[in-house]
Design a protein around this nucleic acid. Structure first.
Lengths: 232, 232
DNA sequence: GACATTAGTGACCTTCTGTTACTAATTCGC
DNA sequence: GCGAATTAGTAACAGAAGGTCACTAATGTC
């Protein structure tokens, strides 16, 4: 049993303002970077996540695609919801509810639109409190799902070297991996297939190019993991 | 590059109706069960998830707690967002946007409120299309996070036997586990500690009771997993 | 007291994983 | 041209983790 809730019982809210806030992530210069746009002059901060209200009849993911295209100049390779935020933290458009969506894209040469710029995750400018929370949540979600979903491949072009793939995993997991172990596990996963192309990257031996091509796997369901269990 | 979006460019929606829809899960009679309430007479279906609009100033999780209490008669042990739904699928209250939240609770003897009833996940009555999607997503999310988060312990009372714990994992993962492997992995995880109580369950040897008591673990960060990678 | 039933553990063997150390193919400096 | 530096890729060993079987332990049922 429990005390009555502490908030006063007011009538349920009938109408709210809704925003879709997008965390566009891409590897840039050996770090993970977020795409930010110049914030409206009325806000306190000079930068914000790209965001907008959905159009009438537009789904959340459709809105996120549109918003991303409006800043990145290209379509993101993968979208994933990271959560809804309806607490008191300030939003640049004062939306009551934000749906946070993370968008992944490889490094592309398309020109950014409307003064958007990449910022390293490690060196973000001040953001509105809600945007800051969405970015934090997005990176957490991406790191949690990196081995259940082919997120890493969405940050790379269609063909890539295994060293590039390993570097992406190291960015996402934020720790170094051993080359031999990484490749052996990748081999066992049947997720990539080699192409017959090789790429010479300046010095050193040329690397073979691979593509993401997941194949059926022998159903090797493993036991329970009891992983970190970090409390949220 | 890409074609213009197919939806007509209408002004962004300024006001929407928001619902919090709760999937209350609990083990009941050897299956996972969902708590449903009798739907308003105006809807097509006879049952629905418990839901409501948030009160003014009320956070999403607070609303979910209140909604759960209004049907379960007790406070849920754990809440987790499973996603926002804003597509055209019909909601019983015609909300534009639903935030789906899963609530976990152990089997309790408190009386359900207002004609709420448990339904096995395997035998749900017809639900509105959006509620059906939220239930499916909730079970997917719970199964995905079961080894990164102490979900299983929230479906059990404070003390429990290892056989009960294993049964919960088998419900959540939907497959049998080997007793010796399960216990060895649990031992290595330092997640439970024995109490000095034993419980005799009718026939068979009495089982020792344990409690959830996660301890610091030697930082055994493991390599990349490349798990199932089931495409959404 | 024999038997069924559930709890709990020891031991074996296979698979997985971390690590070291090697070979291979290229560029750079001279 | 040629050795050093650099990056790619692999073999092989050792130890850890995980699947399985077989056993012991403690209770209720007949």
């Amino acid at each position: 049993m429990r005390e009555r809730p502490t908030h006063p019982v007011k009538p349920a809210v009938r109408k709210t303002t809704l925003a879709v806030d997008v965390v566009v992530l891409s590897p840039q210069a050996d770090t993970l970077a977020v795409l930010l746009v110049r914030a409206a002059a009325t806000g306190r901060e000079r930068w914000s996540l790209p965001w907008d209200a959905p159009m009438s009849g537009e789904g959340l993911e459709d809105a996120a695609t549109r918003i991303t295209e409006g800043a990145l100049g290209a379509t993101p390779a993968l979208l994933e919801q990271v959560g809804a935020f309806a607490d008191a933290r300030r939003h640049p458009g004062d939306a009551d509810v934000s749906v946070g969506i993370v968008a992944l894209t490889p490094q592309i040469e398309a020109a950014l639109i409307g003064g958007a710029e990449w910022f390293s995750l490690a060196a973000l400018p001040p953001l509105s409190p809600r945007h800051r929370a969405i970015v934090d949540r997005a990176t957490t979600v991406v790191r949690q799902r990196v081995d259940q979903s082919p997120l890493a491949f969405r940050l790379l072009p269609p063909t890539f070297t295994l060293s590039e793939l390993q570097a992406i995993y190291e960015l996402l997991l934020d720790r170094r991996l051993h080359k031999a172990s990484f490749r052996r596990a990748l081999q066992a996963s049947y997720l990539v297939e080699p192409t017959d192309e090789w790429r010479s990257e300046g010095r050193g031996r040329p690397a073979q190019l691979f593509r993401y091509a997941p194949r059926k796997r022998r159903g090797t369901r493993r036991g329970v993991r009891f992983d970190l269990f970090a409390e949220t």
